[in-house]
Design a protein around this nucleic acid. Structure first.
Lengths: 207, 207
DNA sequence: CGTTAGTTTGAGGCAGATCAACTTTGGTGG
DNA sequence: CCACCAAAGTTGATCTGCCTCAAACTAACG
């Protein structure tokens, strides 16, 4: 749930302000797959990933939340348990809004549910489009679009090969091979663990 | 969007009743990927599939709508164009509710948006869980769960191998091989184009 | 009863997974 | 501040599940 470009729902932001901001370390989990929701989360600083763990022991990266985004709302408003875990990919500052307070706010604010619905509708589109991309395209294509997304979302984050693999439904060695190809073509550069997009036009030709 | 088990939203059903039911033939499209929404659809009879076409010319089967379900709502409430087409997989009876009337109903009915949000939230979970299943599991697993889903959803529909393939992110020949394995194990039976689940316990061992 | 749509089978090829050994990086504590 | 160690990255060899292609067969519908 994003509030950025929707003035009418700025009150949602205010909702969070009445609660204290808590600190979390990189690697911390806010909640785990299978648990029941207790809070609505508002990320003030850092980066959070939504991960679903598979039987094979992998963690598929479903969504990313950046500064100013709300998360945990899908489960909060669906009477279900979490289908994935949320984990800090960096040190984070997060406001936890108790479930009761959040529901109360929504029930008192007619357009809040409309906004929530719209937000979920967009997320659903994204998820479905991505599932087609994943099953139809090859790894190079997926890595290229993942890099564009990641760098747009948070250019300064030190993305690991594993994070990229988890997002691309692939594995670390495969991602490394794909990225060397992209580097060889002059689309990106890699120094130590830093990844830079040096030529967006070239990178986009892989999509 | 389903209304089945939610008494509080039965008024939504009534909304559709004031409009005439139109007939569509198997193969007809209600709307196509890229178009802008004009209606909210209420399926009275038949089976509708939501398909996203890929560059390679395939049609990925994203969702299925059966009798009494609403569809077209994701796009209607998200200010976007359709990201997939909806196509009659059987002859259908459908009520078309003009966009304006639908929006008016939602704006006049506070809990309608809350219900819509909940419905989209569940659909989002389904989509994300499925994307992990598709990228992690093998074809046999996907076919087994697809058959269970399809037979639960509409036992009498004559599912084609292509429909199954489109849903399983696979291809017709691969589906046929997978289904012969399931038949050899005594999980299903195939006569002409008819598919029957003869032993659900066995079938579930493949998931 | 002809035509079209759907099904079936097999041969061949390849993208990407797996596995394993090795190197680099960067944080931590002695 | 350096030595160490765990975590992350790299590389190549091998293997395999599924796709592709093509040809032949069967069902269903007008």
């Amino acid at each position: 749930m994003q509030t950025n470009d929707h003035d009418e729902i700025n009150l949602l932001k205010e909702l969070g302000e009445s609660f204290v901001t808590k600190s979390f370390a990189k690697g911390d989990y806010l909640y785990r797959q299978g648990e029941s929701p207790e809070y609505l989360y508002h990320l003030k600083l850092g980066l959070v990933g939504l991960l679903r763990s598979t039987e094979a022991g992998n963690e598929s990266l479903l969504r990313l939340f950046k500064t100013d985004q709300f998360f945990g709302h899908r489960t909060l408003f669906s009477d279900e348990t979490y289908h994935a875990s949320s984990k800090c990919l960096e040190d984070c500052q997060i406001k936890l809004i108790p479930k009761k307070k959040a529901l109360q706010f929504f029930n008192e604010t007619p357009m809040a549910y409309a906004y929530l619905a719209k937000s979920l509708a967009k997320e659903l589109r994204r998820a479905e489009v991505r599932s087609v991309t994943v099953s139809e395209g090859d790894v190079l294509q997926r890595v290229a679009s993942a890099l564009i997304l990641f760098k747009t979302l948070k250019p300064d984050h030190l993305w690991t090969r594993k994070e990229i693999a988890n997002y691309c439904a692939s594995r670390t060695p495969t991602i490394i091979t794909a990225m060397s190809k992209l580097e060889a073509k002059g689309a990106i550069s890699q120094h130590k663990r830093e990844i830079q997009i040096v030529n967006m036009d070239i990178l986009e030709t892989f999509i």
